[in-house]
Design a protein around this nucleic acid. Structure first.
Lengths: 210, 210
DNA sequence: CAAGGTGGTGAACGTTGTTCATAGAACGGG
DNA sequence: CCCGTTCTATGAACAACGTTCACCACCTTG
């Protein structure tokens, strides 16, 4: 039994790797079941013994992308409390720029995180939300320094807002359809945005973000 | 000659209308060539006499969506110069909230604006960029009041940044995958963001946005 | 070693967008 | 008014997709 299970696990891992390579090379439309089977060296139907469908496989790839970004964010000790508001603002800027850099370095894998939406309309699995929450801790840590008065729920909410604004800059800044922007210009715009928000948050009426 | 041209134009208009309805009802994947032909009452191949492919048809629908949003922004005289910085900030907030409201009211048509990317990799046609530029004038007008020192190019760039941040809030705020947020919470977060950026812009070193 | 069940196989299915030989309508000159 | 020409709409056919399923081989077990 363990022999067949090991083979299944091996095929699963190989499929995830091949899918990641296909997405990194040609984007989400570059993920084709027949190509996967060919590169992995298994039958077409074998894919569906390892995963219910290609959507589940994409989710696995997306999880790895999130984990790769977490690695790019730096070691775990970045979550240690920061000394003052200035350091906290700097940390937020650092995270935002790391997000931009990661998106630029891995454009297709990063786009797949948002481009993909399961046609089933089903919510993402728990292990996916867990990884999301892990990443948001990196934003919430400096946020707690800037706004120690916020409840954990309000802090979580505000971190989503900060991330959303950053994400907007990155996703449209890397999209040549809207405007051709150089790397440096996007960097500067992003830094300006984050510093403006951090400044606004420190000075804000605590009731604002409730 | 005019008779056949009139018929062609009629079919074109009917196809755009049917495509818009299909996208509004079931999103971009709900646009199927055979369904279109059936609802319009023409043959399958007739679609390809009116448009080179379905991508071109989607672009026509997206143009109508942009025009509908422009209508929702209010009359043209909104572009008149504003008296002071406070009024300009209020106008930016109003535009941002209008964007949010439009996205909420027409979720699938609005998503199609960004979800769609032509596989050809070709740049969008000129008439599409023209409509985009028309919309950005609504942001640039109040921006000129807040930062009269900016060159037109810097103003255009800054308006893109402002829009991008707003867009990030809206697109992730309406997406239940990230966090289930109520309408009012998203509204408040968006208003906070825009006011923080407007305040940061007024106070900023003019060199920041060059 | 024979019998039974489990799991991989790849041909086949149902849907896509797009094309193309063909039938038919529109037009112009006799 | 009619026939020859040209151009257009038609829908069956094509290629490619994700997914399924009857089959066959292998492994486990008595």
């Amino acid at each position: 039994m363990t022999a067949t299970e090991a083979r299944r696990a091996e095929v699963r891992a190989a499929l995830i790797g091949a899918a990641e390579a296909a997405i990194a090379a040609h984007g989400l439309p570059g993920l084709r079941a027949r190509d996967l089977a060919k590169t992995v060296g298994c039958a077409l139907g074998a894919i569906y013994t390892a995963f219910p469908d290609l959507d589940a496989l994409i989710q696995r790839v997306n999880l790895r992308t999130l984990a790769a970004f977490e690695g790019a964010l730096g070691p775990e000790d970045r979550l240690a409390p920061l000394p003052d508001a200035g350091a906290a603002t700097g940390e937020l800027v650092r995270i935002g720029l790391a997000y931009l850099d990661f998106a630029r370095a891995n454009p297709l894998r990063w786009r797949a995180l948002f481009q993909h939406q399961p046609q089933d309309g089903a919510p993402p699995p728990d292990w996916y939300l867990v990884e999301q929450a892990r990443l948001f801790r990196f934003i919430e840590a400096p946020l707690r320094v800037l706004r120690p008065d916020l409840s954990p729920a309000a802090c979580a909410l505000l971190s989503r807002t900060l991330f959303s604004a950053t994400h907007g800059i990155v996703i449209l800044g890397l999209d040549a359809r809207l405007m051709p922007l150089s790397h440096d210009v996007v960097r500067q715009q992003l830094e300006t945005l984050i510093r403006a928000m951090a400044a606004g948050l420190s000075a804000a009426d605590p009731g604002d973000a409730a």
